[in-house]
Deep mutational scan, measured.
Amino acid sequence: MTEYKLVVVGAGGVGKSALTIQLIQNHFVDEYDPTIEDSYRKQVVIDGETCLLDILDTAGQEEYSAMRDQYMRTGEGFLCVFAINNTKSFEDIHHYREQIKRVKDSEDVPMVLVGNKCDLPSRTVDTKQAQDLARSYGIPFIETSAKTRQGVDDAFYTLVREIRKHKEKMSKDGKKKKKKSKTKCVIM
């Protein structure tokens, strides 16, 4: 069974824990209790493949930012979460993405942009803004509501699919490099 290491990042209060708990335990946590770091595991079937999701729910508070490099190193894919009623959390996505790329030393890291709290009427981040940002990053965008469960499975499952595509691409690139290195030079 394939294991996928997913990391949920975003500013404090955007609903990272609520999304994760909704996926794992099928219930909505409405009281806000700032996370330092929590880890969850769940076995699911995605596109006919049974897999184990190892999900790291991270601290959004700035005082825990020193811990970010460590979990970013171990993560295979990242859910970059903002709240649709919090423009600052949307603007912060850029910083999370840049930090992930720096730590992973790669421009090509599996990510999904997630606009959470889409059940709320007080939207300050337009869907088109988020779609445009995701398009500019070359990553999928999904709106979710941890409260109603809308888009929750889709967000995590899409990230797994992005990781699969990335692994497939990397193995193809690896095979191309191996083929090239088999060419021999004969000096007579």
Rank of each mutant, 00 (worst) to 15 (best):
D38A: 00
L79D: 01
S65I: 07
V7G: 03
E49R: 09
F156K: 05
I24V: 05
S65M: 08
N86K: 10
I84G: 15
L79W: 02
D126C: 06
K16E: 01
Q131I: 06
Y157M: 05
K5C: 02
V114Q: 02
G174D: 08
Y157E: 08
R102E: 12
S106W: 10
P34H: 02
P140S: 03
E49F: 05
I93V: 05
T144H: 05
M111C: 06
S39Q: 09
E98K: 02
P34Y: 02
Q129M: 08
T58E: 01
E143Y: 02
I55Q: 00
H95L: 08
N116C: 15
K178T: 09
I21G: 03
A155F: 15
D173Y: 12
Y64P: 09
L52P: 13
R123N: 12
V29K: 01
R135N: 12
H166F: 08
P110Q: 02
E162F: 03
F156Y: 12
M188D: 15
C80P: 01
I24M: 14
V44I: 15
K177N: 12
V14G: 13
I46E: 14
T148S: 12
T20I: 07
A83D: 15
R164H: 11
L6F: 08
Y157W: 05
T158N: 05
K180W: 04
Y137M: 12
P110W: 00
A134D: 04
T183S: 08
L56Y: 04
T50V: 13
L120Q: 06
K42W: 04
R68V: 11
Y40L: 00
D69F: 02
D38V: 00
D154Q: 07
I55N: 03
Y40C: 00
I139A: 04
R123G: 12
D38I: 00
R161G: 09
V125I: 07
E98I: 01
V109P: 04
Y64A: 11
M188Y: 14
Q70F: 10
C51E: 13
K147E: 08
K88D: 15
K177W: 05
V109Y: 04
E107Q: 04
Q25E: 01
S171G: 03
V160I: 10
V114Y: 04
K177C: 10
S17M: 00
S122K: 09
L19D: 15
